[in-house]
Write a protein that binds this DNA or RNA. Structure first.
Length: 595
RNA sequence: GGGGGUGUAGCUCAGUUGGUUAGAGCGAUCGCCUGUCACGCGAUAGGUCGAGGGUUCGAGUCCCUUCACUCCCGCCA
């Protein structure tokens, strides 16, 4: 046989190959030892093939003693299995290999974690031995899925006419946004590069350079603390930017791309084939959040005005409303027969969340409409009818109310929406619900400093034009700034960019930056915009989160090949690590002694 | 920086009200077994109960401190 290691892989042999002499190489996934007969499940990237050897073979004892996860080469003949021994679970289950010879290609010590199980393991062991962890079925498949998704997206982008470019990894520190990762410069002592938080400025410069449509599967670096859906350090975005476009043009590209990708890689249903567009303001009112989960049918309504009525006697809320608080509610359909415990649990839960609780009552009708439940008696028939017309509630429905300032209300009603929907089992886990959140405000007021700040990206284009924007009321200026949300997870945000220097200076001045400040801090950008910049805009969907959704995983490490732990350490490579004095000297750095 | 959870054999976990020698499954080692596919059966080895301190006649169990991992808040386009 001319091949050295294999003639076939472990996933391709079937009934058609019976009688052939083959070479297979792979890992010993599992052994089943019958004393005089030994089954070996040989595994490689492509599948598992059962191989068999018996006492007649002189190599029997040696193979019997070879540990799991040893890499071996097997020489043998493909034989078909008898009807009753066929394994329908695996692709190669109709055949097995009668082993003639074998030899060890790579030995294996006792395993720190088993490869052959679906059990869950402590994170630090998995990360330290990631190369073993990655052999395991589920995560191995996740990583392959990730590769396929990226390659699919790349093909789609090329087909849509986008050009793929690389942008610098060593760049300059930017004043806005997240904390930068810094890299000391040897040739420029005392100066530092920063790793890009995103190729934001570069992609705009690519547009100014006339390339029209750009994309990149771009690594992004942000030195912020981790979350389950946020890697410490680095993550990937599908970064894209287009010239001569309006918001709708970007939406069309992204919707096409995401719909194709999600249809290709998941069996789950798409709730909308045209993604609904929800304004930021509406999202905050109806869902209490700018990343609403539209699988959840519950809506939030403002019913503050009810508590100004003479015929409502719920004095606690009335007093708070007089002082400026608002009242918002969630209606649950046909819950009048739910046990008292259902309501009390939610109230108790809300108190645990730091709210003063969730008041509730149920709408009933005998001769006339009445409220049943702890606070039902405080509402007149007419006020209940007004609530019904404001919220769409009907007889038999229940109403949960909270009263507070706007920010706390948004927080608690958003959480309550999720909690109640879960308790009532209202969320269809088998769907993806995408939506756009649009019309973000350009500015917001900082609670602590009471100063006006950019609420998102300062380079976003305000809605309106230089001569009709009311700069006197900056908090009312909306931006062509948009987010895409799926199942309550923020997938990306983007904007039509401000390519007009004059308008840029004006907006920055509202946020307290002088023309000089802007010229200094964003010199590359503002300079470029002064030499003929096309109108342009883009977006940057998070690749890791897209793969998370497609793989149905809750943690980003499950779709990342070599992730760091929560403290931003790579336990396998021992990063970050100490460096020696020579390196420090070359970089003109000295370390402060640690406390 | 703050809050919650977890930490017992190589791995996954049990361990009662504080009470004799800390257990099980998988894995390892040895033996038996020719049709398994989570093979089966028997035996053996394997423990700083995360670490340190305290209370107690006695601590895996109670208290304090501390470390590691994780989830969340802060932070984050």
């Amino acid at each position: 046989m001319s091949k050295k290691y294999r003639t076939h892989n472990c996933g391709e042999l079937n009934i058609k190959h019976v009688g052939k002499d083959v070479l297979l190489s792979g890992w010993i996934n599992k052994k089943r030892d019958h004393g005089n007969l030994l089954f070996i499940d040989l595994r490689d990237n492509y599948g598992i093939t059962q191989c068999i050897i018996d006492k007649e073979n002189s190599k029997f004892n040696e193979l019997e003693k070879t540990p799991l996860e040893t890499v071996i080469r097997i020489e043998g003949k493909v034989v078909n299995r008898s009807e009753d021994t066929i394994n329908k679970e695996i692709k190669t289950g109709e055949i097995e290999i009668g082993i003639q010879k074998f030899n060890v290609l790579g030995t294996c010590k006792e395993l720190p974690l088993p490869v052959f199980t679906d059990q869950e393991y402590a994170e630090d062991i998995r990360l330290k031995y990631r190369f073993l962890d990655l052999r395991r079925k589920k995560i191995h498949e996740n990583i392959i899925l990730r590769s396929k998704v990226i390659s699919f997206i790349r093909n789609q982008m090329h087909e849509l006419g986008f050009l793929e470019f690389q942008t610098p990894i060593l760049t300059s520190s930017s004043p806005e946004g997240a904390r930068d990762f810094l890299v000391p410069s040897r040739l420029n002592p005392g100066k530092f590069y920063a790793l890009p938080q995103a190729p934001q400025q570069f992609k705009q410069l690519i547009m100014v350079s006339g390339f029209d449509k750009y994309f990149q599967i771009a690594p992004c670096f942000r030195d912020e603390d981790a979350r389950a859906d946020r890697s410490p350090g680095e993550f990937y975005q599908l970064d894209l930017e287009m010239s001569f476009v309006e918001q709708e043009d970007v939406f069309n590209v992204v919707e096409t791309l995401l719909i194709n990708t999600f249809k290709e890689f998941s069996k789950k249903k798409l709730l909308f084939n045209n993604f609904p567009k929800i304004s930021y303001k509406e999202a905050m009112l109806k869902y209490g959040s700018d990343k609403p989960d539209l699988r959840n049918p519950l809506l939030i309504n403002d019913i503050t005005e009810i508590f100004l009525r003479e015929d409502v006697s719920f004095e606690i809320f009335k007093r708070l409303v007089k002082k400026g608080s608002m009242v918002r509610c969630i209606v649950t359909k046909k819950t009048k027969d739910k046990p008292r415990s259902f309501f009390d649990n939610i109230d108790k839960w809300a108190k645990n969340q730091g709210a003063s609780g969730l008041a509730y009552f149920t709408l009933e009708k005998d001769k006339e409409v009445s409220g049943k439940g702890p606070i039902g008696k405080f509402f007149s028939k007419e006020s209940l009818e007004q609530i019904m017309s404001l919220t769409g509630a009907e007889i038999g429905d229940s109403i949960f109310l909270a009263c507070s300032n706007k920010k706390d209300l948004e927080r608690i009603t958003s959480l309550a929406r999720e909690k109640i929907a879960k308790d009532l089992d209202l969320i269809d886990d088998d769907t993806f619900a995408f939506c756009w959140v649009i019309d973000y405000p350009m500015f917001e007021i900082n609670d602590v400093t009471n100063k006006i700040e950019f609420s998102h990206n300062p380079f976003s284009m305000p809605q309106g034009s230089l001569d009709n924007i009311n700069f006197e009321k900056p908090l009312e200026i909306l931006a062509y700034q948009y987010d895409i949300v799926c199942n309550g997870i923020e997938l990306s945000s983007g904007a039509i960019r401000n390519h007009i220097p004059e308008l840029m200076y004006k907006l920055f001045s509202i946020a307290g930056y002088s023309k000089n400040d802007v010229n200094q801090k964003f010199s590359g950008m503002i300079n470029a915009l002064s030499y003929g910049a096309p109108p342009h805009g883009g977006i940057a969907p998070g690749i890791d989160r897209i793969v998370m959704l497609l793989a149905n995983e809750k943690n980003i490490r499950e779709v990342t090949m070599f992730p760091m732990n929560q403290n931003a350490q790579d336990l396998m490579m021992n990063a970050p690590s100490d460096i020696n004095d020579k390196q420090l000297k070359e970089l003109n750095l000295s370390l402060r002694s640690k406390k």
